[in-house]
Design a protein around this nucleic acid. Sequence first.
DNA 1: CCGGCGAGTATACGCCTGTTTACTTGCCGC
DNA 2: GCGGCAAGTAAACAGGCGTATACTCGCCGG
Lengths: 186, 186
Amino acid sequence: MEAQVTEAKPRSRAATRQRLLEAARGLFAEHGYEQVTVRMIAAAAEANIALVGRYFGSKAGLFSEVLAGEPTVAGVLEGEPEGLARRLAEFAVARMHSEPESPILRSLERSAGDPEIRELVRDRLRNAIISPMAANLTGDDALSRARLATAVFLGIGTMRRLLGPEPPSPDDVDRLTAVFEACFRP
Amino acid sequence: MEAQVTEAKPRSRAATRQRLLEAARGLFAEHGYEQVTVRMIAAAAEANIALVGRYFGSKAGLFSEVLAGEPTVAGVLEGEPEGLARRLAEFAVARMHSEPESPILRSLERSAGDPEIRELVRDRLRNAIISPMAANLTGDDALSRARLATAVFLGIGTMRRLLGPEPPSPDDVDRLTAVFEACFRP
DNA sequence: CCGGCGAGTATACGCCTGTTTACTTGCCGC
DNA sequence: GCGGCAAGTAAACAGGCGTATACTCGCCGG
């Protein structure tokens, strides 16, 4: 949570910008866009509030840059399509049993109030997950099936956030693999 | 959306309370807890803001009462367990292709900022969906499987909210049925 | 050694939130 | 008819939000 830099902070634009960016990343990932205030970000980065506006234009601009810099599940998506369901299942199970710290997907679920932010999130979801996933599928309604699988993925995240992490079970991966395969079946 | 009462409003505690309750129900269902303000509710109910506090204690109290009065998916859950997956699929597809107006489940997905509200939502989710669903399943980890199926259900809602309603496809029900069956398989 | 410029700061602005207070209005039993 | 109490109202409160402004400080080239 408080992953702030302990080293002395030099009077450097680039370094301060970076601290703000990383602080924002962590907070957004944990709490979502709306629950995080610029004052929280500035405090976590040990920087002044006004610098958020100066360096990123606005809170939304900062969020946008965080989103752009975030690694995606691309590594899971590429590879032979046969194993896709299992790779997704393994990835989801890993997320399911780990504590909150996790990529920006976390904030995808719950950042929806501001329409501008919603659009950012939607584009990101499409371009980073659904489209590449659909590209791995064959058949007419590949997009629709990719959407369904992504929905399952998001739903698991929502559930974990709401009810807390589940006790792991060795059957989880197998069952989830079957679920994703059912999503992908033409 | 603007399903306000057009009849003249009598100076009646019970009637005004009811109008507030219904207005809140509609708004919460459409936008979620945090995005709805008590001023919006009062305006929709054509009542004074202060009455929310007077009749329900607080915004959270009003939300709690809305939640308690909301019908659940109980009708879908009861019945022979064999057809459960298909009934769930039909229910989800119906929700998937309909415009926003929908039960309070909508707000379950995105009402999470305030811990008090979060707890309300979590309890409701457990008592109204997961537990009864698990009761229909056999096997040790029935709860875990019910959680997964519920996650799929929520994920579909999140997806629809984010990307808009999908064009219907006749295969949807079959595919979703297979997905839920995969969730339920021991 | 010092002038200037950019990094960093403190503070205030305007707005919106949920909640509360003090007040007015209208109806119902007597 | 009318007194009183409940229903309804307007306004303000305290606090939080994102953003913008005017300022000070620290460093670096000359």
